[in-house]
Design a protein around this nucleic acid. Sequence first.
DNA 1: ACCTGAACACCGTTCAAGT
DNA 2: ACCTGAACACCGTTCAAGT
Lengths: 232, 232
Amino acid sequence: MNIETENRERQRTPLDREKVLKAAVQLADREGIDSLSMRRVGHQLGVEAMSLYNHIANKEDLLDGMLDVVLAEIDPPLADEGDWRHVFHERVLAARRALKRHPWASTIVVTRVNPTPQMLAYMDSMIGIVRRAGFSLDLTHHAMHALGSRTMGFAQELFEDSADPSADPAAMELMISQMAEQFPYAAEIATKVRHDDESVVGSGCDDQFEFEFGLDLILDGLERLRRADESR
Amino acid sequence: MNIETENRERQRTPLDREKVLKAAVQLADREGIDSLSMRRVGHQLGVEAMSLYNHIANKEDLLDGMLDVVLAEIDPPLADEGDWRHVFHERVLAARRALKRHPWASTIVVTRVNPTPQMLAYMDSMIGIVRRAGFSLDLTHHAMHALGSRTMGFAQELFEDSADPSADPAAMELMISQMAEQFPYAAEIATKVRHDDESVVGSGCDDQFEFEFGLDLILDGLERLRRADESR
DNA sequence: ACCTGAACACCGTTCAAGT
DNA sequence: ACCTGAACACCGTTCAAGT
């Protein structure tokens, strides 16, 4: 029995911040972040929207809290053993798994104006990995900027759904043939992606693969710079 | 005399799509994307919000059109001469300059569900640069994913304003000392950034530098892969 | 052909009033 | 101490009615 039905029957349990956040996360998971309103979170808890203001400051505070619920799910880092790139890579994938469970979370990260406590804790642990691997303060700073949102397990993909399998193939075919004249290079890539998608084994647009490809490209570049710095 | 005052006096000139887009861009430049509403764009043109629907389909269509106004300002690419990385780098900076003139544009890019015509044209030209430099179709595809939004001249920065000079130094000092215990690595970086900002010459958090650092790190990594691929 | 008034179904947030 | 009714100042969008 979830919170909603429980509270609809009789509102014995008083509200608190944690209950509000949990209900909001549940609602966003089920209906998407665009459907999340104060009124709807209230309804989910069997309460009017105004009651929520007794437990959260405003909607921004609600979003901050929801993000921290998600980030608290990230697995702790591996021990510092062997190549720092491995430790870093694995932790980024742990963050990615947590964010993937709540697809709205990455859009929330991006709109935060101040880092939340859990974001700070996560970033601190990631900075620690490279510092203990011998990165200078300068190179560490550049590294974090270069990685950007990849540190948190996601990257800004342009045209995320162009390879969406739900798009019907006939429309895709038409689009590609129309693009071919004006945008030959883009059409060539779109054709490749479509072909690879059709063959079962191929991975025309495997998000996970592309994410790790980009991540390791940057980590390898950084390791090269660390070595150059060290032997300076 | 701008469109607003002109049309307030007497509405002789009939509306068209271009005028709506221009007015919307002007409004977003001046007051930010959050202040952009159908009602306010209408007001800017001396017209009710409902009139806009004669020229644009809906708000998403308006945002698409606004983005294409901005992207049309990107300088054309250099000739294919010398290192492809230079040509690519310079064009990305051209895109960056255009987006920087309209700070809301990058947030619009990120929320598009379908690529706009100008986005397609831009991406096509960038794909062309690497293809003509000898990249395989596969590597080209991975390259575009690895670069992500960097291709368009921006990157997802976490905590953009943590080095904001408008934040008062005393509050910054306090925050850092509070962080130091719980988040020593993050505090160390924050301290460095603050020091470099104070010295006039230093560039503790030079967005432009960090952007190009990350861009070149990826371009160099890709060039290495291209060479390995070629001599395979 | 283009513009508008009225309306619909929503938002976040405040605050005095209730229990 | 916590919750609510009423209200404020907004949204995007539709559609019949006006010119």
